[in-house]
């Protein structure tokens, strides 16, 4: 609501000024858009030859192109899904180990987490694809991509879960202990279920990052959207058009996921009236920015 705090509720004069500057801004934006469009049109970027195969169902290449894009979608979702599952499992293990580790080896867990957090995802993927075969582990490329993505995302998810556990009121675990539960029982039956719930929106947001990062599979020639786009472009020679379509697909998927996260968050905050309202911890921001 700060945007309304930054300026007064406008009076007639200010409203006029806002209107004028709105018009000016709108005109500038419109001019820029028109210039870009004109320039692209001049270069023949709106020709049916370039767009037809992508948008016209009667174009002879339409079916083949969308068949390839469909396969790319399956490839992307497969990689993203597997990464999510593995990251959740390994991330939970990381988080639990970090929380329960005795001081003697906690530094080791923290060290591994910090190390993996500092590694660029693309290097993790490249590393998996090039080094694992060298040591005799040869897998389909899908798995190199999943391993690379999991290495990074599991530590992010570990941090999200840890933040979730930390956000729970102390009374929760105290109540558990007072019932005579062990540390492990408190974690698995009381803390983790609540942490997952609290952190569900953040976890969904992280899924956006994972979906985006699957695009890095093109580096190891995994046929996700970017690699597929390159193959389409080889024949159709319409890079701008193909990338616009690919970008729209990504935006559609990720925007929906983002909205889903917001919806879940709203429902959760409505349902929960306890002190531990879900907060956007630092870990969440880090995760969202980590996308590729």
């Amino acid at each position: 609501m700060s945007s309304s705090v930054l300026y007064d509720i406008p009076g007639p004069q200010a409203r006029r000024r806002t209107l004028i500057s709105s018009l000016v801004a709108a005109v500038i934006v419109a001019v820029v858009i028109v210039l870009v469009v004109l320039r692209l049109a001049e270069q023949g970027q709106f020709s049916g030859e370039k767009w037809g195969p992508l948008v016209n169902p009667f174009d002879p290449s339409f079916a083949a192109v969308w068949n390839l894009l469909g396969q790319a979608l399956v490839a992307t979702l497969t990689a993203a899904g597997l990464t999510l599952v593995f990251s959740l499992v390994i991330g939970t293990i990381f988080a639990v180990t970090r929380v329960t580790a005795s001081r003697s080896y906690r530094w080791l867990v923290v060290g591994v987490i910090e190390l993996l957090r500092g590694v660029p995802v693309v290097i993790a993927i490249f590393f998996a694809a090039r080094v694992l075969p060298e040591v005799g582990i040869s897998l389909p490329i899908l798995w190199y991509l999943v391993i690379g993505l999991t290495a990074y995302n599991s530590v992010i998810i570990a941090e999200i879960i840890r933040a979730g556990i930390a956000s729970l009121p102390r009374g929760q675990s105290e109540a558990g202990y007072s019932l005579g539960l062990t540390r492990g029982q408190v974690l698995s039956t009381i803390l983790l279920p609540q942490a997952f719930r609290v952190m569900l929106p953040a976890l969904i947001s992280q899924l956006v990052v994972i979906v985006k990062d699957t695009s890095l599979g093109f580096i190891i020639s995994y046929e996700e959207f970017v690699r597929t786009a390159n193959i389409i472009i080889q024949t159709l020679r319409n890079p701008i058009q193909t990338y616009i379509i690919v970008a729209i697909i990504f935006i559609a998927i990720n925007y929906s996921l983002g909205k889903l996260a917001e919806y879940v968050e709203r429902r959760l905050s409505r349902a929960r009236t306890t002190a531990a309202a879900p907060t956007h911890a630092g870990a969440v921001d880090t995760g969202a920015a980590g996308g590729g």
């Binding site: 023949g44 040869s138 093109f218 690699r227 390159n230 080889q234």
Partner: peptide
């Protein structure tokens, strides 16, 4: 500019696919 498209695609694609590992899905 038309030319730059065609050639760039080839060149970038070549520069991009730095390495890859083959697998059944790819065939």
């Amino acid at each position: 500019m038309r030319l730059s498209h065609l050639t760039k695609v080839a060149a970038v694609a070549a520069a991009l696919v730095l390495t890859a590992t083959a697998c059944g899905n790819q065939s």
